[in-house]
Each structure stands twice: as structure tokens, then as C-alpha cells.
Write a protein that binds this DNA or RNA. Structure first.
Lengths: 251, 251
DNA sequence: CCCATCTTGTGCGATATATGAACAAATGTC
DNA sequence: GACATTTGTTCATATATCGCACAAGATGGG
């Protein structure tokens, strides 16, 4: 790609949108400039553009995103049949298990939630479509990494900041690779409080008719409610059932 | 706003993202140019920029959006406490009613779904966070329009293409204004197959502690299952309960 | 197999944007 | 209430992008 095939104004604008988040629901020009590391004048123009197009509101001091911004993500969600397809199955799965059920895909070193059915809020983190978690310490992440050729999985782990979120988090690359082998063999991954204390989860791959892994499904539960060692016994049959039902339907 | 405070490259890029959708999950440069009504060279640069940033994939012919694009909508969903807050209540509501439950806000002439819990898929249209429906013929739209000063509601109806989706759709502005008065008075809106034959729904406003309407909640049901005339009897108590539970929690 | 048609890639002049400094306004501090 | 800081805005100019026109390549009938 040539230098001139890159629209930096566009790239800068996208960076500005991403500056908004849970901790920063409203931003001043200076704040957005600090977060994005762009010039204040540049950020101002991007924000005014967003505001002019109705993607943001401006009260003279703070900018906030409007629901119109959801059109952008919606372009993906509606263009990809997967989220709509799995949603009703997740709903059923979630009701039957009495726990949250989710589906996600891999994006770089992270898993991205594309659909979710929650029974109650079990985590301090709030998950919804579009939410991201590091792949190495999430059950769906393990399943998705296990589906890759080992060299690719290694490559992703190398690019990941393997930090210990809890004392139980596995952070040694070799240990993780070994774990991925186990996951590949047994067909599911169990996470015991590696992401957050008190939370464990179990995931299976979602395959299409040709056997390609296109996503992962999981059930998350509070550790106080279900011990990690019981996860497979209690929820694996339900997950396998959903996996089998979806297999002929995806892609 | 001055002319030079607008970054047209950014605006054009956003338009390109929105070109993707249910009917157009994969686009060539020429297709995207036709949809957006932009010059091919411009669209090409935008698409290559998206691809370079990881928001899109390019196989040399087709561009597709990647899950990374969800970061943009996620910036709104996580920045706005509402979706996360109402989700567990919708889940409960959906289970109790045995029907789909949703929350939405108004964006121009449309309602935008910000959270949803579905029991099964009842509509030909697939709804999910970010989905949009015309406000005039949706139950949540009626509730949200009814919450506006009448002049504003009129203004929005004037900008709306009031088309008859079914023989039951109300399309006369005066009749709609009259209906909004009724909705305001009774505190809920019922839609009987005005959007799609076979689908009816009931919605209530979601107010904050100060009594401002911040969103709408609804339950949708197949007409074959529940007649529109029974909706209020069957589901209004559940909706009112949820409305009351959420009232002290929002904003 | 060839021609008509559609698509993609590229060079260039005209036009629009980014930059950083300077200034004005607002905010916070003592 | 005055000073110090931060923030928002403007401006001139260097730089980058836009859209057009054209070339090259791909596609699809007949």
C-alpha cells in the first residue's frame, strides 16, 4: 500500500471515537487529545465532525457519543450472520444453565464478544457485544487459540502482555501452549479464576459443517456457586448440545 | 462551525463503514463507491485505511469488516451506563414473560436498540443492539415520541417517511399525534402488527428519578400467540414492575 | 476467442487538512 | 482578587488528500 492510500484524517477520527469508554463517557477536547496523543486542534476538528454528523453531542465543553455511533458496529453485526444465528441458542443455553452464556471470535490477541445472554451480573467487568478480553486467560480465548496452528498461537502469545490478573492466572507461554494442547484434545477449556477472582467458565469451539472453528461458546459462573472442577460435569453436555445444533447452521 | 472545522476524509470514511450491512456483508471498491456515492479513489483509500488499521479484511477483491469495528460501538455502549444497567432486568423480564424484551433510545426519526433479551426469534427482521426501527410504527418509538413536546414530535414525524409496512400501519400524522396523546395519558403504547404482520408489542417509558424519559422498554410477541388486545393485561404489570425497579437506578 | 463492459490502480493539479505557535478565555489556587 | 494553569480557538503555511482522467486488468456473453 502506498503512503497516499492512507487517509490519516480518517484514522485519527477513529482513534478519537475509541478514546471514549467506560471510564471516559464524556471528554473535553484536551482530554481526548491527551488520550489519543493527537494535537488539540486535530482532535477538535474530529470531534466537531462527529458532532456535525450526529455521532456525538457537544454542550460547549463536553463531547459525548450518541446512539448513532452504534450504526458502525451494527454494520458488522448485521453483515455477519453469526451473532443473529447464535443469539437464540445462547438465550436457551443461558436459561437451561441458569448462568451467562456468550459467543465470541478472536481478534488479534483478544476475544470479542459477538453475542451474549446473561442471567445475572457475575463479574465486576461488564460484558456485552463488542466487549474484549485477553485471549490467553479467557475460556473462549483458549478454545480459539487451540484451534490455530501452534506457530500462530505462539505468535499471538508473544504479542500478548501476559499479566497475572489473579494468583491463579497462567502466564508462562510454554505452560499455556501445553494447556492449548490439552484443550484441543479434550474439546473444551475450563478457566478457574484466571481473569478475575470468583469467576470461572467453560468454553467449547463452534464449528461449521466443514469442521472449521468459527467462534467459541461459553458459560460463565461464580466460583462460589460452582467449583471449576464441576463445570464440565454440569455444563459440558449443554454446551455440546448447542455446539451440535449450531454446527450445520453456521457458514 | 467553520468550514475548516470539518474533516471530510473522516466523514467519508464513516459513510464507507455504514455501507456494509445485512445485504452487503462484502463489498468491492466499486460497490462501496456506488452505495456511498463517493469517488472510487476516495472509497479505495478509506477501505485501505480500514484494512491497514485492522477494521477490515481485504482479499484483493472483497472488503469485509472485522470484529474490531465493534470497538467503535462499544465506545458508546460502555460509555453509557444504561445498556449494562438494564440488561439483567431485561433478561428477567424476558424469562418471566416468555417473550423478547428490549430497551431502546430515540435517535432522530428512529429507535435504536441498546439492549435486548430474546426468547426466540419472532420477527423476520433480526434485532440486536444497534438495530434501528422507524419510531412512528414501533411501540418504543411511540413511547419515546410521546415523551417529547408535541412540536418536536410533529417535527420528527414530518421528517419521517410514513410508509404503510402492513395494512394496519398508521401513517396519518394527525392520527399519530392523537395516538401519542393517548400513549402519554395511559403510560404505555401498544402496536398491533404495524411494523410487520404477525408481530405485536407493548412498551413503557423508562424514567429516571427526576421523571425524565431516558429510554423505553418493550415486550414483543407473535400475534398468533397473544392478541394485541391482551398485551396490556398480560405484560403491563411486568413492564411496570421493571420500570419501577429501574427508575431509581438510571442517571 | 474477441469484443464490450465493468473494475481496479495511478499520476497530477486543485483543493482541503494538519501543524504548532500565538492568543483568548476559562478554570483553579492561594 | 490576582496569578498561574489549563483549555479552546485562530491563523499562516507546509503538507496531504480529492477527484478526475486515463491505463491496465478482469469478466462475461455471443
Amino acid at each position: 500500500m502506498r503512503e497516499t492510500d492512507f487517509v490519516s484524517g480518517f484514522a485519527r477520527g477513529l482513534k478519537v471515537i475509541e478514546a471514549f469508554g467506560e471510564a471516559q463517557p464524556r471528554l473535553t477536547i484536551a482530554e481526548a487529545a491527551k488520550i489519543t496523543d493527537l494535537d488539540r486542534a486535530t482532535v477538535r476538528r474530529s470531534l466537531l465532525t462527529l458532532s456535525e454528523l450526529g455521532y456525538a453531542d457537544y454542550d460547549g465543553k463536553f463531547f459525548t457519543l450518541t446512539p448513532k455511533i452504534l450504526r458502525l458496529g451494527h454494520a458488522y453485526l448485521s453483515a455477519t450472520p453469526l451473532p443473529a444465528l447464535v443469539q437464540p441458542y445462547l438465550d436457551q443455553l443461558s436459561v437451561k444453565a441458569g448462568q451467562s452464556a456468550s459467543a465470541s471470535v478472536l481478534d488479534g490477541t483478544e476475544v470479542v464478544y459477538v453475542a451474549r445472554a446473561s442471567q445475572r451480573r457475575v463479574m465486576s467487568i461488564n460484558l456485552m457485544p463488542g466487549s474484549r478480553l485477553p485471549a490467553y486467560c479467557a475460556s473462549m480465548g483458549r478454545v480459539l487459540l487451540a484451534a490455530l496452528p501452534e506457530t500462530e498461537a505462539r505468535e499471538i502469545l508473544k504479542r500478548t502482555e501476559l499479566k497475572a490478573n489473579t494468583p491463579l492466572t497462567k502466564t508462562d507461554p510454554e505452560e499455556l501452549i501445553e494447556e492449548l494442547r490439552r484443550v484441543r484434545e479434550q474439546g473444551y477449556a475450563v478457566i478457574d479464576q484466571e481473569l478475575e477472582l470468583g469467576l470461572c467458565s467453560i468454553a467449547v469451539p463452534l464449528m461449521n459443517a466443514r469442521g472449521q472453528v468459527v467462534a467459541a461458546l461459553n458459560i460463565g459462573a461464580p466460583a462460589a456457586h460452582v467449583a471449576a472442577s464441576e463445570l464440565a460435569e454440569r455444563y459440558l453436555p449443554l454446551l455440546k448440545e448447542t455446539q451440535a445444533a449450531l454446527r450445520p447452521l453456521v457458514q
